[in-house]
Design a protein around this nucleic acid. Structure first.
Length: 298
DNA sequence: TTGGCGTCCTGGAGGC
DNA sequence: TGCCTCCAGGACGCCA
């Protein structure tokens, strides 16, 4: 699932292909991608736009044009790009939703199996307003501090995991890196956010940044659909400490990793390293052990 | 204001 | 082998 490390890895690969190039033709095959706008209309508007910068905020990929407009791409669950820069035709793909041809002959295809991804074309005065309303601070920015995280957790009774999945709390953290960060910080995912003390906030701040950086170093995690624009897989899944490791021994203490549901999401944690202590668990959609039949279940 | 839950969407896995 | 059901989860809207 594309989270900050995956989107950042995609951005780094797309930038040299797109920056400075003109969108010569745009074909959008799936009306869902641009809804409520008509895909033909969006494709027509994109024609002739020259890319100034490929940017990112949280999980949003932002293609900024010289005109000041921006194409805001959200990969959601299964969105990915595939580029062809040497004239090789793009392979057939039943899940291709759009293709952009550039003025140098390169092609960029967008595929999305579950069709949750979105393309949104914004006018110059709309971009920052739109993103700022949905996305909080960048956790890897040099100006980001633990106090910013503390401010966002204060007064929230929801489980800390639910709180950090909220994109206004920390931009770009999704289900995978939330579990990884909480493990690093030794915090039980059902701990009420407001009960996370200052020392734990500091550990969580560090855990979030370390988890995300590790993900970027390995160019994201490929569990099923995620691919880099050159078709290669990410490698971060080989370094996960808890996510998808139900029943396997914890790297720190050897206790089998447990799986529960928090905020409707499969949640993996170490029951020894990540204790609730005397604190009452925050209410959750279901905190009973999951009987998932997926490969990730315990 | 906050948080839970349903919805969208499709492929894969497991059960029968 | 084929059909059915469950599960995965990011964002958003609705409701309590």
């Amino acid at each position: 699932m594309p989270e900050l490390p995956e989107v950042e890895s995609v951005r780094r690969r797309l930038a040299p292909v797109l920056e400075g190039r003109v969108f010569e033709t745009v074909r959008i095959a799936d009306p869902r991608l641009t809804r409520p706008l008509d895909p033909l209309e969006v494709a027509h508007e994109l024609d002739g736009e020259r890319v100034a910068l490929v940017d990112r905020r949280g999980k949003y990929l932002i293609v900024r044009f010289e005109s000041g407009r921006a194409l805001l791409v959200h990969l959601r669950m299964t969105g990915s790009f595939l580029t062809s820069t040497d004239g090789t035709p793009l392979p057939d793909d039943a899940h291709r939703r759009a293709v952009v041809t550039l003025d140098d002959g390169s092609a960029v295809a967008y595929r999305d199996v579950r069709r949750f991804g979105t393309w949104l074309l914004l006018e110059p005065d709309e971009v920052d307003t739109y993103v700022d309303a949905r996305v909080g601070r960048e956790p890897l920015a040099t100006a980001y501090r633990a106090k910013h995280l503390a401010e966002r957790l204060a007064g929230r009774r929801a489980p800390v995991k639910a709180a950090i999945l909220d994109q206004r709390t920390v931009a770009g953290v999704g289900n995978i890196y939330a579990d990884e960060a909480l493990w690093r910080a030794r915090i039980h995912p059902l701990t009420p956010a407001e009960k996370v003390d200052a020392e734990e906030v500091q550990a969580l701040y560090k855990g979030i940044r370390e988890s995300l950086r590790a993900g970027i170093r390995r160019q994201g995690s490929t569990l099923r659909d995620y691919r880099l624009p050159d078709g290669t897989e990410g490698g971060a899944q080989h370094e996960f400490k808890v996510y998808g490791r139900g029943g396997e021994p914890c790297d720190r203490c050897g206790t089998p990793i447990d799986k529960i549901r928090v905020a409707g999401r499969g949640t993996w944690f170490c029951p020894t390293c990540q204790r609730l202590d005397g604190r009452q668990a925050a209410r959750s959609s279901s905190s009973r052990p999951s009987r998932s039949r997926s490969r990730n279940s315990a």
